[in-house]
Design a protein around this nucleic acid. Structure first.
Lengths: 211, 211
DNA sequence: GATGTTATACAAACTAGTCGGTATAAATTA
DNA sequence: TAATTTATACCGACTAGTTTGTATAACATC
C-alpha cells in the first residue's frame, strides 16, 4: 500500500461532517471527531492547521459533491426528455427517489452553517451561493423556455425556480422536527405537482398523470 | 418601583435569542450573552439553573410567540374572507407583508435547534412539532374544504399544506446564503401563486389577479 | 536515512457553574 | 412611624473541567 494520508484525511472529514450535521460543528469537539474516526490528536493537526481550516474544507467538499450531483442529474433528465418542463418535473421525481433511500437523518451543511454564523466566512458563503444559483438558474431557464409554448398561470418564475432548493432546506428541518424522514421526498413530489398545475392552469390536457 | 426580576430575565432571553439565531447557542458563551445584556455571571445563574435550562426556556418562549402569531393571523384572514381558499391565499400575503419589514437577519430557533441536536431534547422537539402541526392542520382543513367546490389539480393536499412552513424554513436559509432578506416575502408570494394555480388548473376563470 | 504519517504528553485559553457578598424593597414589629 | 428582619435581585472573583493547539517521539514506507 502506498503511503497515502488522503484516506485518513477523508476519514476525518467524513466523521466531522456527520457530527456537524447532527450537532453543529461548534458543539463538536476535535476529540469527538477523533473518537469517531479512531484517530488521535496529532493526526488531526497534521492534516488540518486548525478547526477553522477543517470547517472551510468541509463546506468546500460539500459544495463540490453537490456540484457533481447537479451535473449528473441534469444530464440524466435532459437525456430522458426533450421538453424543458418535463425535464424539471423529472428532476423533482429523481430527487424524491433519492431521498426515499436516504441516510437516516439527512441535512444540509450549508443550512447548518447558516445558523452557525461564526463558521460561515465570506469565501464559504460565496461558494454556497454560487452552487445554489446553479440549480436555480438551470430551472429558471427551463421554466422560461416552457413558458413560451405553454402559458403558465401568473407567477414569478425566478422565485418558483428558487423554491426548488427552498423546499429541500425546509423539508430537512421539518423532517427532523417531525421525525419523519419521508417528508423530504413527499415535498419534492408536491412541488412537482404544483409546478405542473402552474403550467397547465391555462390549458389543462385531460391526460392527468397517474396519482 | 416594585422590585421585578422578570425584566432582567427577559433581557437575558432576548440577548440569548439573538445570538443563538446568529451563531447557534452552542457557539454562544454565557459571557457573550451577559456582555450583550450588560449583566454579570451571578445574575444569569440566579435566573437559570444552567445553560440547558435557558435553552429550554428559549424555545418555549419562541413556540409561545409563534402560537400567538398563528391565532392572530387566522383570526384576521377568517374575518377578511369567508372562502377557505381565499383565506389561505390571504395568509400568504399577510406573511409576505410581515417579512418585508422584518428584522435584518430573520431566522427560526426551531431550525437552529434542528442542527444543534444536543439542545433539541424530546420535550422541546414535541412542543415545536405541535406548533408546526397547528399551522399545517389549519391550512390542510381549508384546502380540503376548498377542494369540495373547486376541483384542484391532483396533489397531496397535506403536503401542500405542510409546504407553507417548509417554504419559510427554507427561505430563511436562502436569504442568509444569498444575503437577500426579501427572498422570504417573495417565496411566500410564489407559494401563494402556485396554490392559486393548483386550484384553478381545472376551471380557470378569466379574471386573473393583477400581477 | 529521509519523508510522510500517527501517537502521546503537555500548555494556554476558555467555559460552565459556584460562592460569598451587597443593595434594596417589602414585611414585621415595637 | 421608626427600627429591624427577611426575601429578592444582582454582582464579580474563583474553580474545576474542557478545548484548541503545540511539541516531540515513534513508526512505516520509499
Amino acid at each position: 500500500m502506498p503511503k497515502d494520508g488522503s484516506k485518513t484525511r477523508t476519514l476525518l472529514l467524513d466523521a466531522a461532517l456527520e457530527l456537524a450535521l447532527e450537532n453543529g460543528l461548534a458543539a463538536t469537539s476535535i476529540d469527538e471527531i477523533l473518537e469517531k474516526a479512531k484517530l488521535t490528536k496529532g493526526t488531526f493537526f497534521y492534516h488540518f492547521k486548525s478547526k477553522d481550516e477543517l470547517a472551510v474544507e468541509l463546506v468546500r467538499r460539500f459544495v463540490e459533491h453537490d456540484h457533481a450531483l447537479f451535473k449528473e442529474a441534469v444530464a440524466r433528465v435532459e437525456s430522458l426528455s426533450r421538453d424543458p418542463l418535463q425535464q424539471v418535473l423529472l428532476l423533482c421525481g429523481l430527487a424524491a427517489e433519492m431521498f426515499k433511500e436516504a441516510p437516516e437523518n439527512p441535512g444540509c451543511l450549508m443550512a447548518s452553517y447558516c445558523y452557525e454564523g461564526q463558521l460561515f466566512n465570506e469565501e464559504s458563503r460565496k461558494a454556497c451561493e454560487a452552487q445554489l444559483r446553479l440549480w436555480a438558474d438551470w430551472i429558471e431557464g427551463k421554466l422560461k423556455s416552457a413558458a413560451k409554448t405553454r402559458k403558465p398561470a401568473p407567477a414569478d418564475l425566478r422565485q418558483v425556480a428558487e423554491m426548488f432548493q427552498v423546499i429541500f432546506e425546509g423539508a430537512f428541518i421539518l423532517a427532523r422536527t417531525y421525525k419523519e424522514p419521508d417528508i423530504i421526498a413527499k415535498q419534492a413530489l408536491a412541488y412537482r405537482d404544483m409546478l405542473e398545475a402552474l403550467f397547465s392552469a391555462g390549458q389543462r390536457t385531460p391526460l392527468d398523470r397517474q396519482k
